[in-house]
Structure formats: structure tokens, C-alpha cells
Amino acid sequence: MGLLDGKVAIITGAGGGIGREEALLFAREGAKVVVNDLGGTRDGSGSSDAMAAQVAEEIKAAGGQAAPSFHSVATPEGAAKIVKTAVDAFGRVDILVNNAGIVRDKTLLKMDEGMWDAVIAVHLKGTFLCTQAAAKQMVAQGGGGRIVNTTSVSGMLGNFGQANYAAAKAGIYGLTRTAAIELQKQRITVNAVAPIAKTRLTEDLPMFQSAGDTLTPAHVAPAALFLASDLCADKTGNVLAVAGAQMYIYKVVQSPGKFKDEGGVWTAQEIADHWDAIIKL
């Protein structure tokens, strides 16, 4: 018995890296998988059917069930067609993993609007569009389902040269939290993974030059499997970070703060004078 027996899962960006590992693992655990990938380069240019088709064939060769999808996550039409692929092939949608992504790194002062728009479109808008399309299908089926988004340490903490990527990933955190609240009554859980892994999007970053096999996509896939399974039926709105063998949770933390001793409105000087007390956790 697999954790996902009888389930239908859509995984975007599943032609390589983390998405591919998730697709293969989900299939081994019994899911019927829609392998979505536009097949472009790491900066989002171009397209090819080869990547999604190859992973789908790998799943079938291992005895699983899969259907490829070559649609863009960044348009309403593309998101709708991704969901339609699942319904046409397997009759329903139980799981969505939003993993598709591109990078166009540049420092803030050198980034142009096109670099910003392209990254926001795939990561943040794409996550919104696919989440909305899949959730509507889940509700139409009677409710229940799992949505797993992909945020990033860059979005949680920031990273040099990635203003567009970090903003998109931080936005996905906010989207995850809000969707978790709104979809809870429909029995749809919405969680996110924040992976640190060496993929074609990250392999040229200094931190991965000596990573070897300690930070691989294979380390991330089990976290997505957990969030997509009924083991996570009572958990929603979480960000599960994965860095090789380490797993941890990201949370926005509020300090206890400080009340103005005599009440009233703080002055800027008083804020400066009491800064350490205000920020103390």
C-alpha cells in the first residue's frame, strides 16, 4: 500500500530537479501523476515537450500511471489546461504541487522590469492560478485535497541578487497562509516546502559548489510527499524547510514588544531609546 494510492497528483515543473523527484516518488507511492513542464531554459525562455514526456515515460516504464502536460502555469488558460489534463486522463484532482520556477538573477539596481515580471509571473502568479484552478476542481468533486507550494529561504530571509525571486517566494508564503485559511472549510490543506537543493536553477550559486550529494532534490521529495498525503490531513498553513538531512519550520515571529510607559503616541526618539526592548524575543 502506498501513501497516495488512488490519488491523482499534478506536479508543475516536474521535468527536472525537485519536481522530477517528487513526480517519481509520488508515482511509487501509488499516485497517478500529471507531469507538467513547459520545457524552457532556466531563465524561462523557449519550450520543449521533451522534459515532461521523458519523466512521464519513466513513471510508466516503472509500472505507474502518468500523463504529460506542456502548458504554462503563468496564464489562466495554461492553468486550466493543466487541471483539464488531469481530469481527462484520470477523472479528478486530489493533489497539486506548485513547483514550476525560473531564475533571472540580477542586483536591484541592475534589474530591468522584464526580469522582474517574468519571475513573478511563473512563481507567484503561476502558483495563484494553478492553486485556484485545482481548488475549484477539488471543490466541484465534493471537497478535500492537498496543495503543496514551493517557497524558498530567499523569500523568508532575502538573498543578494534575487529581489524578483525573493519577492515572489515571499508572496507564495503569504498566499499559502491565506489559502490555508480560506480552503480549510473545504477540507483542502495548503502547505509549502522551502527547499535548499542543488538543481539547474541553483547549481551555480557558491553555496552549492561543494555540496556534493548532501543537498539534492531527493532530500526534498519526501517532505512534499508528507504534505501531500493523509499523514498531513490535520496540518495546514505550514512552511516545511528542507536542507539535506535537516528539516525545520519557518514561522513569522512576533516579539512581545513594549508598551509606552505613560501611554499615548510613541515619538521617533522614544522608539530609538527603547529599540532593544521592542525587538526582544
Rank of each mutant, 00 (worst) to 15 (best):
M1E: 08
G2K: 11
L3Q: 13
L4W: 04
D5I: 13
D5P: 09
D5H: 14
V8D: 00
V8H: 02
I11G: 00
G13E: 01
G13L: 05
G15E: 09
G16N: 13
G16D: 13
G17I: 01
G19D: 03
A23D: 06
L24V: 06
A27D: 06
E29S: 08
G30F: 00
L38N: 02
A50M: 05
M51A: 15
V55T: 05
A56C: 07
E57I: 03
G64V: 12
P68E: 08
S69H: 07
F70P: 03
T75F: 02
P76R: 11
P76W: 05
E77L: 10
T85H: 03
V87I: 11
V87W: 01
D94L: 11
N98E: 10
N99C: 14
A100C: 09
A100W: 04
A100T: 12
D105I: 11
K106F: 02
K106G: 06
D117L: 14
V119S: 03
I120H: 11
H123I: 03
G126S: 13
L129D: 03
L129N: 07
T131Q: 11
A133E: 02
A135V: 08
G143Q: 12
V148E: 02
T151M: 09
V153T: 13
S154L: 04
G155D: 07
G158L: 07
F160S: 05
N164H: 15
A168P: 12
A168K: 12
K169C: 01
Y173I: 15
T176Y: 08
A180K: 13
Q186E: 15
V190D: 06
A194H: 00
I196W: 01
K198W: 00
T199R: 11
L201N: 11
E203D: 14
M207T: 03
Q209D: 07
T214F: 01
T214I: 01
H219L: 03
A223V: 08
A223K: 01
F226C: 06
N238R: 13
V242A: 05
A243Q: 15
A245I: 12
Q246L: 08
M247P: 01
I249G: 00
V253S: 04
S255G: 12
F259Q: 12
G263C: 05
V265Q: 05
E270Y: 09
H274S: 13
H274I: 00
W275Y: 15
A277S: 14
